[in-house]
Amino acid sequence: MKRILEKIINDNRVWVKDGELASYIPELLNADKEALGICITTLDGEEYFAGDHNTKFTIQSISKVITLMLAICDNGKDYVFSKIGMEPTESAFNSITNLESNELKKPLNPMINAGAIAVVSMIDGENKEEKFNRILRFAMKITGNDSLSINEQVYLSEKATGDRNRALAYFMKSMDIMEGEVENILDVYFKQCSIEINCRDIARIGAMLANDGVLPWNNQRVLSREVTRIIKTIMVTCGMYDGSGNFAVHIGIPAKSGVGGGVMAAVPRRMGIGVFGPALDKKGNSIGGIKVLEELSRELDLSIF
């Protein structure tokens, strides 16, 4: 497996030159555009690595999967999806127009920014510190990494430049979708996106989902089968933003991307995959990471379709 992964990484490094770093969060411009790495965690707990797998990066929108898990556990799926839809979107992940123009009159899904911000408002906690600490502790649990923390520079950069997210949040507040104080919810959201991880961390989250909510390294159940089924389904339809359909056709794995360059994938009953490549395509997905996953899916016949 290691030889396969090393070959796939080397085959696809050429693609990173066609991507760009995320510029709307200035601190992310400090990433190495040419980095590309992968980790696979099997359901037997075996782990395989190649490329820049140890490089740390911020989790960004992959954190939306974590907060959706918590919100459903705290409130039940019916309540969560009374506030947020389950539908894919053709618009960008930070679109404002589709929030008002869609017939649902609520965020189309929890993987776009509007939906994810609304999800944070539903997580239990007396204040913003308690909400974020619950998110961080849960992230530690499902990665098996007790040393997770936020990248303070990225957090401050996101907070300073997050005006579009503020616009989305205040609009949702006016529509009674948001619960709690808007600025406090946004602070939690900016912090959750700034949690620093590596390929292994997100591969382990993928492995837990692939294992129907059971951690492969200690056999502890952390989510019900029903919640993991919901999460994986939404990852297939919405996890790669407005590139989700193309991803499903060519790769066919439940996955979630982040503009920090990560892609977390879950192959049901087989493995979790974490890929990192900060050079992004026009839809905000890792250009090298997608190519790596495409070749890996062909090589190992991973598509669920």
Rank of each mutant, 00 (worst) to 15 (best):
M1R: 02
K2V: 15
R3V: 14
L5E: 06
R13A: 08
V16Y: 11
G19F: 14
G19M: 12
I25D: 00
P26F: 09
P26S: 00
L28N: 01
D32F: 00
L36R: 03
C39I: 02
T41V: 15
E47N: 09
F57M: 09
F57T: 07
I59T: 01
K64G: 14
M69N: 11
I72T: 13
V80F: 10
K83E: 08
T89P: 11
A92S: 15
E100S: 11
E100R: 06
E103S: 12
P110H: 00
I112R: 01
A114T: 02
G115I: 04
A116H: 02
I117S: 06
I117L: 05
A118R: 01
V120C: 13
I123H: 01
N127S: 08
K128Q: 09
K128V: 05
K131I: 13
R134A: 03
F138Q: 09
T143R: 11
D146S: 14
N151H: 10
Q153Y: 14
Y155R: 02
K159S: 11
R164V: 00
R166W: 12
Y170C: 00
M175G: 07
D176R: 03
E179F: 03
V182I: 15
E183V: 03
N184W: 02
N184D: 15
L186P: 14
D187R: 09
K191H: 08
S194L: 07
A203M: 09
R204P: 01
L209N: 06
A210H: 02
V214Q: 06
W217N: 10
N218P: 14
R221L: 10
R229T: 10
I230P: 03
I230D: 02
I231E: 05
I231N: 03
K232V: 10
G239N: 13
G239C: 05
S244W: 10
G245C: 02
N246I: 12
F247R: 15
V249E: 15
H250Q: 07
I253D: 12
I253A: 13
A255I: 15
K256A: 08
V259T: 11
V259M: 08
G261D: 09
G262V: 06
G262Q: 07
A265F: 04
A266G: 10
V267P: 13
K283M: 04
S286V: 01
R298H: 09
E299N: 03
E299P: 02
D301K: 10
